[in-house]
Simulated assay, not measured.
Amino acid sequence: MTYVVTENCIRCKYTDCVEVCPTDCFHEGPNFLVINPEACIDCSLCGPECPADAIFADKEVPPEQSHFIELNADLAQLWPVITQTNAPLANADDWVDQTDKLQFLER
Rank of each mutant, 00 (worst) to 15 (best):
N31G: 02
Y3G: 09
Y14P: 04
N8H: 11
T85C: 13
Q65M: 13
A52D: 05
A92G: 01
V96G: 00
D16C: 02
I55V: 11
S66K: 15
C25L: 00
Q65W: 08
Q77L: 09
C50N: 06
I41D: 09
L45D: 15
N91S: 10
D24V: 11
T23S: 13
E7K: 06
T83I: 07
Q98T: 07
D74K: 15
S44D: 15
L89F: 05
V20T: 04
P37Q: 09
D58E: 14
E106V: 07
M1L: 05
T6V: 09
D58Q: 15
H67E: 13
C50I: 04
K13F: 07
D58C: 14
E60Y: 10
E38N: 11
K101M: 03
Y3R: 14
L75Q: 03
F32I: 03
E60L: 13
C17M: 06
K13R: 12
Q103P: 07
V5Q: 03
F26W: 02
P62F: 06
P22G: 04
E19H: 13
C9T: 00
C25E: 02
L105H: 07
K101R: 07
P22V: 02
T85Q: 15
D74G: 12
K59Y: 15
N86I: 04
Y3I: 11
N72C: 05
F68N: 05
F32Q: 02
Y3M: 13
R11Q: 12
V61Q: 05
T6R: 07
D97R: 12
Q103C: 05
D74W: 13
I41Q: 11
V61S: 09
S44R: 15
N91W: 09
V81L: 05
T99Q: 15
G29A: 01
T99I: 11
V18Q: 06
P48A: 00
R11E: 15
C40V: 03
F26P: 08
V5R: 04
N31Q: 09
I55T: 08
A52F: 03
D94E: 15
F32T: 06
D97I: 08
A73N: 01
P51Q: 09
F32G: 02
I55N: 08
P37C: 07
D24S: 13
I35M: 09
Q103W: 10
P63Q: 14
L45V: 12
L71R: 05
K59C: 08
P30M: 11
L102H: 15
M1R: 10
N8L: 07
D58Y: 15
L102V: 10
I69V: 14
V18I: 01
F26V: 07
I69D: 04
E28C: 12
D94A: 12
D53Y: 08
A39Y: 07
C12L: 06
P48H: 06
N8F: 08
I35P: 01
I41F: 02
V4H: 02
T6L: 10
C43E: 06
C46Y: 07
A39M: 13
I55Y: 09
A54W: 00
F32N: 02
D42H: 08
I69T: 09
D53V: 14
A52T: 07
Q84F: 14
N31F: 03
C50L: 05
K59T: 12
E28D: 08
I41W: 00
V61L: 11
N36R: 03
N31E: 03
I82P: 04
A73F: 10
H67W: 12
C50F: 00
D53N: 14
I82S: 00
F32V: 06
E7D: 00
A54T: 06
C46A: 02
D100L: 05
C9S: 02
F26D: 03
